[in-house]
Every structure is written in structure tokens, then in C-alpha cells.
Write a protein that binds this DNA or RNA. Structure first.
Lengths: 149, 149
DNA sequence: AGTGAATTTGAAATTCATTATCATCATAGG
DNA sequence: CCTATGATGATAATGAATTTCAAATTCACT
């Protein structure tokens, strides 16, 4: 964990940046925090440690992590962006439309098919996003009345 | 096409709405327009016929179509929502990060795997979104220098 | 055709996440 | 210790999307 922070610090220096206390705190909390965080959530978590950190810094830091490929930007269509660590292997998401819970899954066969499809279209993929929306076990509707809310 | 508009009109009446000239124009242009339109594009297209249509009406109409399941809301992560007709069979998207072109594809085997995955997690899927980002044939980079822009 | 209740409209105002601005502060190299 | 420059945090600005509201339109009922 510390070595991760060091590594990131080095990369920041390498692109002409300086170290800073606030940013280091944001980064550490980000990697410790559960995944799929919104900036607001992350800001709140960081402020528990250091009340003075402004949300602009959190926005900047999380964008920086995404630029350095340590974080991935997610968007589940509810109007706010979420971020997750990009250290773990690639995975996709199951998003519950009722309670907002997000589950992760891996399915290498889907990845394979995606590459095939891209190739068929003369397309050079750099990344993809697969989100499955629906109802998790807890929120599963016995009937369909929930649907239209 | 006319029967489609009639059918939609009937549904609107069924949920307590009234017919209106502007909305009918928006709906017609929407179904005639190429797919993946932004609200801005659609507004512009509608105004060619009827200068007086306001963008609020376009926003409202396209939301209404989505509610009635005639349109699908898309989001390719560039900050604006896009809409496409929901009449055609389901398909997914290849999005070029360079020129913004969007290509559609169908891959039933991916759909099947998605349902398997959902079932494995006790998840009840209602829809999904698969977007593959990368470079289309035209924008394909010979080297990797394009990547970071 | 006329009336009235209800919906829709377009313009403008508002909302809200995100980004930019800017004066001040912190960092790091000399 | 000095200085140049990047980073910060408060605040203002941006921009897509939504809401407000008075005026216009629709439509069921005469």
C-alpha cells in the first residue's frame, strides 16, 4: 500500500508535479475505500481525517489518478461519476436499480467475444464497459409492479 | 410510420396526456433521424421544420418516449445524453474515441453469457449496456501516439 | 361554435455536478 | 533562506438538464 503511494508519487514527479499532503490523503483514502465511490463520498471520507480538504482537490486528484491509469471512471447513468481502483483485474458490473448496490463479475468468454466483434468491424478496441442493470437478490420483484417506479 | 405515431399518441392519451403539434413533430423527426442523437441535434433538426419549438419540449418529449419504451437513453460518457429508437432489436455499440462515430453490432452469444452471469449472481437483469471504445478503421493509429489525446 | 378544466408550450430561471479562476500556501532545488 | 512553480481551497463559472410559469392549446361536454 505504501509502495503503491510511493509509486504514484514518483509518477507525479515524473510528469512535473509536486507532492502534497492533501493529495496524498485523497489517494490513500481512495484506495482504502470501497469501490465505485462518488466524488462526494470520497470527499466526505477524506474530510474525516482532514477537515480542510476541498472538494476541488478531490476532483482533481481522482482525475489525475484516472489519467495515470490508477483509477477508472464509471458512469451508471444517474448523473454522477464514480471511480474505482484500476489495480485489480478488469471486471464488469451488475447494478441494482432498486437499492443501487453494485456487484462485480468477470467473464473471460465475454471479453473474447468482444474482441472478435471488434475485429470483425475493423475496430481497434482500447476498453469497454459492460453494465447489467436489474434487481439484486434482495430487491428481486415477485411481480412486475416495481418496474415502472 | 404514421401508424407508429398514432400508436404513440394513443398511449399518451391512455396515460392522461393530450396531443400536441410540437410534440408530434419532435417524435416524427426523432424516428426519421439517424440514431444516437443528442438533444441538441434533435432540437436543431426539429427547428428546421418549426422554428418555434423550444428545447425544453424536446427534452420532455424524448424523456416521454423513453418512459413509454419507444426510445432508449444512451450515455457514451462525454457529458451529454443520446437517444435512439427502441423499435429495432437490441444491439450494442462500438464508439470511436477519435471521431465519435458509433457503430452497432449484435452478438447473441454475448447476450446469452450475460444472462448466465446474472443468474449465477442471483441477479434479475432488465437491461444491459455494452459499449466498446476504441478507434474505428479510419482513425486507427499506426502507432500509439494518438492514445493519450 | 362556445365554455371550461386540464395539459402543453416556450422562454427564462433554476439546479446540480463538474471545472476554471485566483490569491495564497507548500514544495523542492539551489 | 530564497525563489520558482505546482497545489490548494473558496468561490465563481460552466453547461446539460429540469423546473417554473403565464400564455396557448387541446378536448370533452354542451
Amino acid at each position: 500500500m505504501d509502495s503503491l503511494l510511493q509509486r504514484i508519487d514518483q509518477e507525479i514527479v515524473a510528469i512535473g508535479g509536486k507532492r502534497s499532503r492533501s493529495r496524498a490523503q485523497v489517494i490513500e483514502v481512495f484506495f482504502r475505500t470501497g469501490t465505485h465511490v462518488t466524488v462526494e463520498e470520497l470527499t466526505h471520507a477524506v474530510r474525516k481525517r482532514n477537515r480542510s480538504v476541498g472538494s476541488a482537490t478531490v476532483y482533481r486528484t481522482v482525475k489525475l489518478l484516472a489519467r495515470l491509469d490508477y483509477a477508472k471512471e464509471l458512469d451508471f447513468g444517474d448523473g454522477l461519476k464514480r471511480y474505482e481502483s484500476n489495480l485489480e483485474a478488469h471486471h464488469d458490473h451488475l447494478v441494482c436499480q432498486e437499492c443501487g448496490a453494485v456487484f462485480e463479475f468477470k467473464e473471460p468468454r465475454i471479453e473474447t467475444l468482444q474482441e472478435q466483434v471488434a475485429k470483425q468491424h475493423g475496430f481497434f478496441p482500447t476498453m469497454h464497459r459492460l453494465d447489467i442493470y436489474g434487481y439484486c437478490r434482495k430487491c428481486a420483484p415477485g411481480d412486475k409492479r416495481n418496474r415502472d417506479k
